[in-house]
Simulated scan of single mutants.
Amino acid sequence: MKIFQLCYDKALKWSRHKNAPYFLGGMSVAESVIFPIPVDVMLAPMALANPEKAWRFALIASIGSVLGGILGYFLGMYAFEGLLQPWIIELGYQARLDTAIEWFSRYGVWVVFLAGFSPIPYKVFTISAGFLQLAIIPFILASLVGRSMRFFLVAALMFWGGADMEHRLRQHIETIGWAVVVIIIGLYFYFR
């Protein structure tokens, strides 16, 4: 059964929907606060399906993500103990939060930049930045640079790869998908 190919085809179909940019913006905001699926999952197929709009999609994802980061910051600042901390404990994110707090004390605002660009869960750092009351302007600037670099890189790869990349990706999507599942399971057991 070709699970990942089916998902890939659905993602390409949705990426061509007339409201896809709005969905991308909403997903970008939500992913920076609580949503577990990375924006790249929607951005990449959208940039593949409409390469001439790849830069616009990257801009939408960047702005939405930073706005979501600001929302996460204020949630961390004003609603951490009463609302968010019980969820963090329930979802098993306490160890990640402790790591984020340690990294903030060691590296400051550079952690936000790193989390914005890398696959590290950005939402943990947006909430932590608010909880730890990191200065808001450096937080916004680091978020804007890190998130923009990431999303414009994804858009660029899809733009330059074009139809050829879409064809190659479709050919190998099952292998890539199962490899990612194996890596995630391996990392789970390694860090557990």
Rank of each mutant, 00 (worst) to 15 (best):
Q5P: 03
L6C: 08
L6S: 14
Y8Q: 02
D9G: 11
D9V: 07
K10N: 08
K10I: 14
A11N: 07
A11T: 05
L12Q: 14
L12D: 09
L12S: 09
K13L: 13
W14G: 02
W14T: 04
S15C: 03
R16T: 06
R16L: 04
H17V: 00
H17P: 01
H17K: 08
K18I: 03
K18Q: 10
K18S: 09
K18A: 05
N19C: 07
N19S: 08
N19G: 10
N19I: 07
A20G: 06
A20Q: 07
P21F: 15
P21S: 13
P21G: 12
Y22T: 05
Y22C: 07
F23Y: 08
G25S: 09
G26P: 07
G26K: 06
M27I: 13
M27N: 09
S28D: 11
S28L: 03
S28H: 12
S28M: 08
V29A: 04
V29P: 03
V29D: 04
A30D: 10
E31H: 11
E31D: 10
E31W: 06
E31I: 05
S32M: 09
I34M: 15
F35L: 13
P36L: 14
P36C: 10
P36K: 12
P38K: 12
P38L: 13
V39I: 14
V39R: 09
D40L: 02
M42R: 03
M42Q: 11
L43E: 10
P45H: 11
M46K: 08
M46N: 04
M46E: 07
A47K: 00
L48S: 01
A49G: 09
A49M: 11
A49W: 04
A49T: 06
N50G: 11
P51G: 01
P51C: 02
E52C: 02
E52Y: 01
A54S: 15
A54W: 00
A54P: 02
W55K: 14
W55R: 15
W55S: 12
R56Y: 00
R56T: 00
R56G: 01
R56P: 00
F57C: 15
F57V: 15
